[in-house]
Design a protein around this nucleic acid. Structure first.
Lengths: 325, 325
DNA sequence: CTGAAAGCGCTTACAG
DNA sequence: CTGAAAGCGCTTACAG
């Protein structure tokens, strides 16, 4: 079945394509007779006409799309919420958000060329050549960064996450700290930042360097790690995130010990399960709403040609003290 | 800065736009002299040329995009994995997957018109008019459904999820069952199916109808629900999903009772936290990999004009028996 | 108030 | 082996 074009609508309603375009885009509204307008609208509906965005984009040189490029690992609840919020925020500005999962085998270039977005928001680092090529094509390129980076429009200070964990643990009297690393290699970038924050804060406070153990998401792995920490004199563990923290809690139990008496545990993210574990997990929460609004504001500013307002970066993080530490 | 076009490349390398197109698309490869080819490639690189997909799509009438439309609530780990896998699977066929979160305020029509995808995969029901309009525009429309639906390319049998939960609970001797409903209204569609499966299986086995309680993701709410179940004589609870199940476990603890001795609990999804809770959660796992491959196959088949092969639908579900029931 | 015409950037028969 | 030309569907000055 052939595509219905504006020419078909023009023919059907007995006017020119110009008039069809004017009516359908509400342009020069008053200058089209009500009668003509009716006729065009009716014809369009009858024919089931829908304009080709490819043609429209080609003509006008811009689309209404914002492309979010995600890292190649599973999103997780925080980023998930950020994307939902962002979609809502940008919809107010007539912009549609599209998300690409993982950079996969296909080069990023093919993707942004294929959608010609107004802006690309990177939740993962992409190459300088990619960024340059996009800018050359008139696309706004925004970066969300893992940490304080002057070029980033928004940064969750990952080192600060680690710092906050240590602060709480130290304030509650612990001096021998452990750090629970995730096994998934794709998390390495994040893990590194958080760990370096933990290290730095330990050093600043004159504590011993944290004892790092890999912790897989099962009881056996966690139990082994806890045994190792115990024999190193560790009394409190900061975990990469809540899931890992939950594993550590299970490991402590697996050793016949208890949280926080024998080993205190602190996570990151404040996932729903954190509230529900026994004991409830003390954790560093990230405010997804604040992140989403900051990014939305930055995107809007970039599109308006205005400089991005620097958001208060620290505000995103909040320590939630519960039973585990 | 003006866009670099193929005409610029042609000028720079002293050939026609035709030749540029042939070289860049590896068309008629052998028929272009190696020398010319070099020159064009060099010029393109020097100028930083990247073809306009809008023009290309307009010309050829097709893009390489597959659009996935998600429901307007947070994705969750299973769908998340499905999307990652799908992206990988379809990349092999030169297709890029784009995801739209939530249907939001902007009409779906604007979105698919703006990207002119080859196929749209709906993980949420969309209106018949939308579907028709897309088909008219030559887009393959695929539906993932909540349950057995002959028009859907893939269905996770949600009623079967409930059935499996009841089967296990009944087999382990329980006759008075409870069902833990999620509070989030946007989950209603899913919840309804799962509950109806639970109801049906209870009826089939001659058990009393399940006692339904709303359970929010906090201890207080869950504790109240558990109290209500206890006074109704319930000894086992099937939960909407693992998160709700974890809440129920916390609620049982909140009542000073124990799992599974006083109340058995079974969830759905097999999230990582399920393995780590105390006791570990018995749950109905959904195999995201199987789902992703089935959908990828269906998309590929639709694009080839072949009828979608009906996947074995039951295979996706697997009962994982652990400590909680 | 409405129409004829140009042009966005690309690809692909069709000629050489 | 390479080029001139048409056309994908749309919008928008520019004429009437």
């Amino acid at each position: 079945m052939p595509r219905v074009t504006s020419a078909d609508v023009a023919l059907e309603s007995g006017v020119s394509r110009t008039t069809v375009s004017y009516v359908l885009n509400d342009k020069h509204g008053a200058m089209i007779s009500a009668d003509t307008r009716e006729r065009v609208l009716a014809a369009a509906a009858r024919l089931g006409y829908s304009p080709s965005a490819a043609a429209r984009t080609l003509r006008s040189g811009r689309s209404d799309l914002v492309l979010c490029v995600l890292p190649n690992w599973t999103v997780g609840p925080v980023l998930d919420t950020v994307l939902d919020e962002l979609t809502r925020e940008l919809a107010d500005r007539q912009l549609s958000v599209l998300v690409h999962h993982g950079r996969g085998p296909r080069p990023l270039a093919e993707l942004w060329r294929a959608v010609t977005p107004r802006a690309v928001v990177g939740f993962t680092e992409f190459g300088a050549e990619d960024a340059d090529a996009m800018r050359r094509a008139g696309i706004q390129v925004l970066n969300t960064s893992l940490d304080e980076d002057p070029r980033a429009v928004f940064a969750v200070p990952q080192t600060r996450v680690g710092q906050l964990q240590v602060r709480h643990l130290a304030d509650t009297g612990h001096v021998h700290l452990g750090w629970a690393a995730p096994v998934e290699p794709r998390l390495a970038d994040f893990a590194e930042r958080r760990l370096s924050g933990v290290r730095a804060e330990c050093a600043r406070r004159g504590l011993a360097a944290p004892v790092v153990q890999d912790v897989d998401l099962d009881v056996a792995s966690a139990t082994a790690a806890v045994r190792a920490w115990r024999s190193a004199g560790v009394t409190a563990v900061a975990a990469y995130n809540d899931e890992v923290a939950l594993a550590v809690v299970a490991g402590v139990r697996g050793c016949g010990l208890s949280v926080p008496g024998d080993v205190a545990v602190i996570g990151v993210d404040d996932v729903p399960a954190a509230r529900l574990s026994d004991p409830a997990l003390t954790t560093v929460a990230q405010d997804a709403g604040v992140q989403a609004r900051a990014i939305a504001t930055a995107v809007a500013a970039a599109l308006d040609g205005a400089p991005a307002p620097a958001p208060e970066r620290a505000e995103v993080l909040r320590l939630g003290v519960r039973g585990s530490a």
